[in-house]
């Protein structure tokens, strides 16, 4: 055996072991969810058959159709408005003459690491004051605010990588700033915007603390919030039904990930380097 072959085998073994450790909990609850209702699964053996009863019970008992719908509305609102506002801002930061770009950008950077815990108390009382608590806006508006720093940061580095010559040529032909942005720069940025969309989608979909505080109405719970109430409900104390519920909530994110993962991960890795 050549030494390079041996190295490859070691590398593959490490990767396989890592993947096994990552996948084990997923398969563990998948087998649990697919198990025959009423039987005790040890979690250490393969299931004897496939039963979907737990999935049906979880879907009807936990209100996940409304949960998924609420999450969908919030995600569309947050991702759409965030990107719509961040693109011109990042464009102005990178390509237009602005006085005080550095201090403004520094203020934005604070938002990159700011925890929700430092904002939720006043947000809760303000939303109540304006009668927006228990409305989707109570979830959408704050998440736009906290998504904007990262989005501008991300898009600005993407604008930076576009050669200046492109926009200058268009300028000489008399194109305005907005035309240059929409017709020339944005088409170059499709991959960066796609990665950003996926990232914002996942963060918004998975957000929990804000929903826990703002949403009192059971019909407006987001999917993770509905899941947490369901998991704490003694009436559905069967871990197999809870497992099925968890899979319902994870499913939309998993589907998006499976389709876009290649682009998404390479976008992440190059994005981190910037």
């Amino acid at each position: 055996m050549k030494p390079s072959d041996r190295e490859k085998i070691i590398a593959h073994s490490i990767f396989l072991l890592g993947c096994l450790i990552v996948l084990y909990p997923f398969f563990s609850i998948l087998f649990l969810a697919l198990s025959e209702p009423g039987t005790r699964v040890s979690g250490f053996t393969l299931p004897t058959g496939i039963y979907f009863d737990n999935f049906i019970k979880a879907w009807t008992g936990g209100g996940f159709s409304t949960g998924l719908f609420s999450s969908f509305i919030v995600v569309v609102g947050v991702v759409g408005i965030t990107i719509f506002c961040s693109i011109p801002a990042a464009y102005a930061f990178e390509k237009l003459n602005l006085l005080g770009v550095s201090p403004l950008f520094a203020i934005l950077l604070v938002g990159l690491v700011l925890p929700y815990e430092s904002l939720i108390i006043p947000l809760y009382y303000s939303m109540r004051k304006f009668g927006l608590d228990s409305s989707y806006w109570a979830l959408i508006l704050p998440q736009i605010g906290l998504s904007i720093p990262f989005s501008i940061f991300w898009l600005r580095s993407s604008f930076k990588s576009i050669p200046v010559a492109l926009s200058e040529a268009a300028m000489l032909e008399g194109a305005g700033k907005i035309v240059i942005l929409v017709k020339i720069l944005l088409p170059q940025m499709k991959p960066a915007i796609l990665t950003l969309t996926v990232l914002l989608f996942m963060w918004t979909w998975n957000e929990f603390l804000l929903a826990l505080i703002m949403i009192q109405d059971a019909d407006m719970r987001t999917a993770p919030l509905a899941l947490s109430y369901f998991a704490g409900n003694k009436r559905y104390g069967d871990p197999a039904i809870t497992a099925a519920a968890a899979i319902w909530v994870a499913l939309p994110v998993l589907i998006v990930y499976i389709f876009l993962q290649r682009r998404f991960i390479s976008g992440m890795v190059t994005g981190v380097e910037k």
């Binding site: 997923f26 563990s28 993962q261 991960i265």
Partner: peptide, 18 residues
């Protein structure tokens, strides 16, 4: 890479239940 990245994309509520 796709598999190793998986825990990053899921809700911590789902991870916690698993």
């Amino acid at each position: 890479r796709a598999i190793l990245f998986l825990p990053q994309i899921l809700s911590m509520i789902v991870v916690g239940i698993a």
